[in-house]
Amino acid sequence: MSSPLRVAINGYGRIGRCVLRALMESHDRDSIKVVAINEPADLESMAYLTQYDSTHGVFPGRVQAFDHGLRVNGEDIPVFHAADPARGPWKSLDFDLLLECSGAFGTRAKLQPFIDAGCPRILVSNPGHGAAEVDYTVVHGINDGGLNADQRIVSAASCTTNAVVPVLDLLDRGLGVRSAFLTTLHSVMNDQPMIDGYHHTDLRRTRSAMQSIVPVATGLAQGVERMLPHLAGRIQAKAVRVPILNVSAIEVSANLARPTDPQALKTLFIEAARIQPNLLACTDQPHASIDFNHDAHSAVIDLGQIRVNNGDFANLLVWFDNEWGFANRMLDVAQAWAGQFSDNPDPVTAEIAQISSSGA
């Protein structure tokens, strides 16, 4: 684009801060400009937790609080603290897109007040409570081509959906997926307590996050079916939370329509990673989860963990940084969407969207 996409961030927690850091560290920082942040926390705490992060390390720059916002690498970002974000001063801001990163707004009824208050468009950092709750759901690299200027509320899906959909799409287009079972091993989240307590209606989530492996409910199967509707009824999923701060994995077990072997699967994924290097990666090293902390890919295929039974039953292990990878995908989706409503779309974004659309 000839001028940067102007975005505001609502909610400056784990994902909101990662989005800002990813823009500074991973993306073309001249293509997107953060013009405002809405967050209830005080400015000193916001600056401190941006500069120093227990998971992603010290910010490679300088973050300071000033009278009305944050100064990041010398650039001032105004901050406001609207208790009801829909009542924020959105109409006074000159911006193109709200990045809703609080995770608190998953229905159209809760998101529409933002539009009414002056937000031109919203990109949501959660899958929403159903397809009807948003205008469109995007997994970058799969269906970006469906974005258009008429949409007002778009979801960037979830970190797990972004990790597994490209893998299932490759398997299905290459070999056909008769059925699949997905097991997510997810790092702890803030809906779990550090010690046992009255923390959630799901009794398992009342247990200490750092002392147990905790099975939880997941909507991953529904998220996959939303992206790959021809697989509806053929995907099942379960999830467990494991006591680590970050990085997750998905074990994919797939019954395939055509026979294969481990080497053929390795070749399939290596070639896909070559074509979409910002989306997928492959490794044949003996990794542990910590090795993928701060990894910007949607998914990293562990080639050493590929197994095939009886020629048509494949088992894979997919690593992903559930914070950093997803934050980078939000920025990718924002740029792809901007290519649809900008007067001067970015030709690279448009080309990627066209390729993704034709291959979905």
Rank of each mutant, 00 (worst) to 15 (best):
H129Q: 13
A254V: 03
S92K: 15
T137A: 15
L20G: 06
I290A: 15
I122E: 05
L182R: 09
N322K: 14
R17L: 02
I9Y: 01
W319S: 06
S298M: 00
R21N: 09
V58S: 11
A156K: 00
I32N: 07
H56G: 10
G11T: 14
S358D: 11
L70A: 09
L316G: 04
E39F: 06
E225Q: 13
D150N: 13
G223Q: 09
S31R: 14
S54I: 10
D94H: 11
G118R: 00
S357Q: 14
F292Q: 10
Q151R: 12
H68N: 12
P60M: 08
A314G: 11
S253I: 14
G128C: 01
D202F: 02
L316Y: 04
R152L: 13
A47T: 00
A83H: 04
N10I: 06
R274L: 12
V58K: 13
L98F: 03
V308Q: 09
V58M: 10
V214S: 11
L228I: 11
L182T: 08
A149Y: 03
A254I: 02
R226F: 00
P4S: 03
W319T: 00
D135S: 09
V79F: 05
T161Q: 11
S212A: 10
V63H: 02
Q285H: 13
G311M: 03
G11Y: 07
D295A: 11
A299V: 08
Q112D: 01
G325K: 08
I77C: 03
M46E: 04
T160G: 10
L256K: 08
S26R: 07
P229A: 01
N126D: 00
L23A: 07
D116W: 02
L99Q: 02
S155T: 02
K238H: 01
N73Q: 04
A237K: 05
L111S: 03
I235V: 14
W337A: 04
G13W: 06
I235F: 01
W90A: 00
M46N: 12
L231D: 05
R87Q: 15
G88Y: 05
G88S: 01
P215Q: 10
A249E: 12
A299L: 07
R178K: 14
D343F: 02
F181L: 10
P89T: 04
M210T: 11
L43H: 11
T183G: 06
S158T: 15
P215W: 02
A8S: 13
E323W: 12
L303K: 06
Q263I: 11
V177D: 03
V252Q: 05
P127D: 05
P120G: 08
Y52Q: 14
S45I: 09
G146A: 07
N278L: 11
L231A: 04
R17I: 09
N38M: 03
G197C: 05
L170H: 07
I306E: 12
T218R: 06
T160W: 05
L20P: 02
G311Q: 12
I142R: 08
G339V: 01
I37P: 03
R207D: 10
G103A: 04
N309D: 13
D96Y: 02
M210H: 09
S2P: 06
H230L: 04
P215M: 06
C282M: 04
V348C: 03
R62W: 09
A47C: 08
G223C: 00
